[in-house]
Amino acid sequence: NKFNKELGWATWEIFNLPNLNGVQVKAFIDSLRDDPSQSANLLAEAKKLNDAQA
């Protein structure tokens, strides 16, 4: 379904953000699993944090 596809894509993108540490990645992935409907918002937050830590 739509959420599974978005969840998978967001998970892959978060895993590939180079400036996040393992704890941050795990926290974002756990949040995605808790509420897949928020995948776009969580991915945006992860990208912002990644950019801030560059």
Rank of each mutant, 00 (worst) to 15 (best):
F15S: 14
A40I: 10
N4E: 15
K48N: 05
E45L: 11
W12A: 14
P36R: 02
E13S: 04
L32P: 00
P18M: 07
K48R: 13
N21Q: 06
L49Q: 04
V25E: 01
T11Q: 12
N41R: 11
G8V: 15
F15V: 14
A54G: 11
S37Q: 06
N50Y: 02
N41W: 13
E6H: 06
L20F: 01
K47C: 07
N50L: 02
N16V: 04
K5N: 12
A10S: 03
W12L: 14
A40V: 11
K2L: 08
T11D: 10
V25I: 13
K2Q: 13
W9S: 10
R33H: 10
V25P: 00
N50S: 09
T11L: 15
E45V: 08
F3W: 09
K2R: 12
K47S: 03
L43I: 09
K2I: 14
G22K: 11
R33D: 03
W9F: 09
F15T: 14
N16H: 12
L42Q: 02
L7T: 06
F15Q: 14
K2M: 11
D51C: 11
K47E: 03
G22T: 10
A52L: 12
K2C: 15
P18Q: 06
K5W: 12
S31G: 09
S37N: 11
K5P: 13
A44W: 09
F3N: 13
F15E: 15
L49A: 03
K48V: 05
K26G: 04
W9R: 13
I14S: 02
K48H: 06
Q38T: 05
N41G: 07
E45H: 07
W12P: 03
R33I: 14
S31V: 07
Q24R: 00
K47D: 01
Q24F: 02
L42N: 01
R33E: 08
K2P: 13
F3H: 12
I14Q: 03
P18E: 06
L32Y: 03
A27I: 09
S37T: 09
A46Y: 04
G8L: 15
A40H: 11
A40M: 11
L32G: 00
W12F: 10
E6A: 07
A54K: 09
N1L: 06
I29M: 07
W12G: 12
K48M: 09
F28L: 04
Q24L: 02
S31Q: 14
P18I: 06
A10D: 07
T11K: 09
F28N: 00
D34I: 10
A40Q: 10
S37M: 06
P36W: 05
Q24V: 02
Q53L: 10
N1Y: 02
K5M: 09
A52N: 07
D51F: 08
E13T: 06
N1T: 06
K2F: 09
W12V: 12
A10L: 07
D35G: 02
S37Y: 06
T11A: 15
L20I: 02
K26I: 08
A40K: 11
A44G: 04
K26H: 09
G8T: 10
E45C: 12
L32V: 04
F28M: 01
Q24H: 03
K47W: 05
I29C: 10
N19C: 14
F28I: 05
G8E: 15
A52F: 07
L20C: 02
K2A: 13
N41I: 11
N21T: 14
S39H: 11
V23N: 12
I14A: 02
Q24T: 03
R33T: 09
I14T: 02
A54E: 06
K48L: 07
S31N: 09
F3Q: 10
P36K: 02
Q53T: 04
G8C: 15
D34Y: 11
L7M: 08
L7I: 11
I14Y: 03
P36E: 02
E6V: 08
D34L: 14
L43V: 14
D30Q: 12
A10C: 14
V25C: 10
E45F: 06
A54F: 07
N4H: 10
S39Y: 10
L42P: 00
L17M: 11
N50P: 00
N19R: 01
S37I: 04
W12R: 10
N16L: 08
W9Y: 11
N50F: 02
K47M: 08
N50E: 01
A10W: 12
N19T: 03
R33P: 01
V23A: 15
D51K: 10
V23D: 11
N4K: 05
K47P: 01
L32E: 00
N16R: 05
T11Y: 14
Q24S: 01
W9C: 15
N21C: 11
L7G: 03
V23K: 12
D30Y: 03
